[in-house]
């Protein structure tokens, strides 16, 4: 299987580089021509400069956000997997549990985040809980739908071989759910960063969320945007990691994609 060359990689990334570059250029031109004060809209150059100047403080506030995101996501993944297996083996549970989970998705983060901080304090715990709350349901739905997408022929075949329900789950339903799992993962991981920042915004000792709040209160939109840039970069890195994980755990997919 030929690996893409450097040239091919650049060609593939070119549209994205162009679109993002154009946006930043337009932003820079607008700020330069309109003479808008940096306290209202700083130029991208100024944001980059402030990001570099404050990199130590911003990094110190990024680490707790990464922690909250990853730990919350881990809790959510573990819970989603446990409940998906439970639901798959005991179907009536689905009707009992799904309404509860769906209601959990209707809770506005604006309302629930301050409450969670009020109940559990300023530590890491409430952030983990909020990230898990936001990402749990998409992951659960992805897994449950993935199990359901198993080819009936494959399950029937395993049954004729004498496979138990548990064996059929492990050998057929679980691997069939992998593409769905990764689709859910890609979506949830972007929610996870936003949820972590929002939880910090509602109250935290350190973190990108509280950093953004403080910068805003000090009339420093350049620092707000620098933190936003960091959170966007963080999301992109996590997203790329899930894509990489998907490639590694589903090698047959690359073969399928190469077929005409």
């Amino acid at each position: 299987m030929p690996k893409p060359t450097m040239r091919e990689r650049v060609t593939r990334a070119l549209p994205a580089i162009l679109s993002v570059g154009t946006l930043i250029a337009l932003w820079q031109i607008h700020v330069s021509l309109s003479g808008i004060p940096p306290s209202v809209l700083p130029s991208p150059g100024r944001v980059a400069g402030q990001l570099a100047a404050n990199r130590q403080v911003i990094w110190a506030n990024t680490v707790p956000t990464i922690q909250a995101t990853l730990l919350g996501f881990a809790v959510s993944l573990g819970a989603a997997f446990a409940f998906s297996v439970l639901i798959d083996f005991a179907r009536p549970l689905r009707r009992a549990l799904f309404p509860v989970f769906i209601i959990s998705q209707t809770l506005p983060l604006v309302a629930i985040a301050p409450l969670v901080v009020l109940w559990f304090g300023f530590g890491l715990g409430p952030k983990i809980a909020l990230v898990a709350l936001v990402t749990f349901f998409p992951m659960l739905v992805a897994l449950v739908d993935g199990y359901e997408a198993t080819e009936p022929e494959i399950e029937q075949l395993l049954a004729t071989m004498g496979a138990s329900r548990a064996t059929i789950f492990r050998r057929a339903r679980l691997p069939s759910a992998l593409p769905f799992f990764f689709a859910g993962l890609r979506i949830s991981i972007t929610y996870a960063v936003v949820a972590a920042i929002f939880a910090e915004y509602a109250g935290a000792a350190r973190g990108l969320g509280i950093y953004i709040l403080n910068a805003k209160n000090n009339f420093r939109p350049d620092l707000v945007l620098a933190a936003v840039f960091v959170s966007a970069a963080l999301t992109l890195v996590l997203f790329a990691t899930t894509v990489l994980l998907q490639h590694l755990s589903m090698p047959w997919r690359q073969v399928e994609e190469q077929r005409p």
């Binding site: 080819e151 022929e153 494959i154 029937q156 075949l157 050998r171 057929a172 691997p175 992998l178 589903m250 047959w252 399928e256």
Partner: peptide
């Protein structure tokens, strides 16, 4: 079975 039911993974 009718279709080969090979597991793609």
């Amino acid at each position: 079975p009718q279709r080969d039911a090979l597991m793609p993974w």
